[in-house]
């Protein structure tokens, strides 16, 4: 088990988020039971784990929707719980799993919601606010949709608009809860390459830090710099995709036999269920066919 995210490249990067001994739950039960990890500025980290392992709970603590029972979170070296909420919203933005506006907002209006933490109660929008909205629309390729109603968009477009809304906050850390779960494969790739580009490119100059809860191990392996595998409320493994996605780790966390191959395109680990029964069927079928031919 690797307990901390080590630097992948030789040059050390600065730590943006440090989570230590985090415990949190609902009612009497604990969902997170001592989670510790660090995030480097400008990294793209995927949070993996079976259902109920605490992935969503972790995100909710990090944007302070939930208050942890024990442990602490340091953001840019400061205790997360000390931030005024508005100040926090200027540093951390969240894209929830199913956030849909009641009432029919246009895309431009939804993206402009991201400026709320920057606006005083009695002030109007400044040119800087309008620039931030335009930039968010441009980065996510949603500029052409600006006048459309959110309800009229496809799922993939809607997800990009919600990411644009978060980017309009001009955060340094972006949290996403299953950003690709309802999308078809081409939209999944679109969203993930967008997120990947944001960590490399220059929102705010220094590159955005992204932490995304994901279900698809192979997409996560292909796009993320680091993976964080949660199991029963603890970090079971953390590190590069190669370090985390091993047959041994996956058997112990997900309880199934897998083969880990190489993704032929990018060389990242590629997890395939080792379906013993199914493979026998196929072998038998092809055997039968070849014998007939023979």
């Amino acid at each position: 088990m690797i307990s901390h995210l080590g630097p992948r490249e030789a040059a050390p990067r600065t730590v943006q988020l440090r989570v230590d001994g985090l415990a949190c739950g609902y009612g009497n039960g604990l969902v997170l039971r001592g989670v510790s990890f660090t995030l480097e500025r400008g990294s793209f980290t995927g949070v993996l784990g079976p259902n109920g392992s605490g992935k969503t709970t972790l995100l909710r603590v990090l944007c302070r929707v939930l208050v942890p029972r024990r442990g602490y979170v340091l953001l840019d070296g400061h205790d997360l719980s000390r931030f005024p909420r508005r100040e926090l919203a200027r540093r951390v933005a969240m894209v929830g799993p199913d956030w849909r506006p009641q009432f029919e907002f246009t895309v431009a209006e939804v993206v402009a919601l991201g400026r709320i933490p920057h606006l005083g109660p009695w002030s109007g929008e400044s040119p800087a606010d309008r620039r931030a909205v335009e930039r968010a629309l441009e980065l996510t390729g949603t500029g052409a949709l600006a006048g459309r109603l959110l309800g009229s968009l496809s799922e993939g477009e809607r997800q990009r608009v919600m990411i644009a809304r978060a980017l309009a906050q001009e955060p340094s850390l972006l949290l996403l809860d299953e950003p690709t779960s309802h999308l078809d494969i081409s939209h999944q790739v679109q969203v993930l390459s967008l997120l990947h580009g944001l960590t490399r490119g220059g929102v705010g100059g220094g590159g955005l830090t992204v932490l995304a809860v994901m279900h698809d191990l192979n997409l996560a392996a292909a796009w993320c710099d680091r993976l964080l595998l949660l199991h029963e409320g603890r970090v079971f493994a953390a590190g590069s995709p190669e370090e985390v996605l091993t047959p041994e780790v996956i058997r112990r966390v997900y309880g199934g036999e897998v083969l880990v191959l190489r993704n032929p395109v990018c060389g990242s680990p590629y997890v395939v269920p080792a379906l013993a029964a199914r493979s026998r069927e196929i072998t038998a079928a092809s055997g039968a066919r070849s014998s007939r031919v023979g």
Binding site: C63, V65, V92, G96, W99, R100, F103, I116
Partner: peptide, 13 residues
């Protein structure tokens, strides 16, 4: 309008 969690994440008390 986006929901209470979304509002919290946007800095709304």
């Amino acid at each position: 309008a986006l929901g209470e969690e979304a509002a919290l994440s946007l800095g709304v008390e």
